[in-house]
Amino acid sequence: MESGAEILLKSVKEICPDITDDELFVFASKLTIEELNKKDFFVPINKVQKAIGFIANGLVRSSFIDNDGNEITVGFYAKGDYATHYPAFITQQPSKYSIQCLEPTTMVCISYENLQWIYENLSGFEKYGRLVAEEILKRQQARIESFIFQTAEERYLDFIKCHSDLFNRISVSHLCSFLGIERQSLTRIRQKLAHK
Results as ranks from 00 to 15, higher is better:
P87M: 06
P87W: 05
A88L: 04
A88D: 12
F89M: 04
F89P: 00
I90R: 06
I90E: 05
T91D: 10
T91R: 14
T91H: 10
T91L: 12
Q92D: 06
Q92E: 09
Q92M: 08
Q93W: 06
P94G: 13
S95E: 07
S95H: 05
S95L: 02
S95A: 11
K96T: 09
Y97L: 14
Y97R: 06
S98N: 15
S98E: 15
I99E: 07
I99C: 01
I99P: 00
Q100E: 15
Q100N: 08
Q100Y: 05
Q100L: 03
L102R: 01
L102I: 07
E103C: 05
P104E: 14
P104G: 01
P104M: 08
P104V: 04
T105Q: 05
T105D: 01
T106H: 02
T106E: 14
T106Y: 01
V108G: 04
C109K: 13
I110Y: 04
I110M: 13
I110E: 00
S111F: 02
Y112V: 06
E113Q: 14
E113I: 13
N114C: 03
N114F: 00
W117V: 08
I118G: 03
I118E: 01
Y119T: 05
E120T: 09
E120K: 11
E120F: 12
E120C: 10
N121A: 05
N121W: 00
N121I: 07
L122K: 07
L122N: 09
L122D: 13
S123Q: 14
S123Y: 14
S123F: 13
G124R: 05
G124D: 10
G124P: 05
F125M: 11
F125W: 10
F125L: 10
F125Y: 13
E126K: 10
E126R: 11
K127A: 12
K127E: 14
K127V: 11
K127C: 07
Y128R: 03
Y128Q: 04
G129W: 05
R130L: 11
R130H: 13
R130Q: 10
R130D: 07
R130S: 09
A133D: 03
E135Y: 09
E135V: 02
E135N: 14
E135R: 12
L137F: 13
K138N: 06
R139I: 00
R139C: 01
Q140P: 00
Q140F: 04
Q140D: 09
Q141V: 12
R143L: 02
I144G: 00
E145A: 14
E145D: 15
E145I: 10
S146G: 11
S146N: 07
S146R: 03
F147I: 00
F147W: 08
F147T: 04
I148V: 15
Q150W: 04
Q150K: 12
T151D: 06
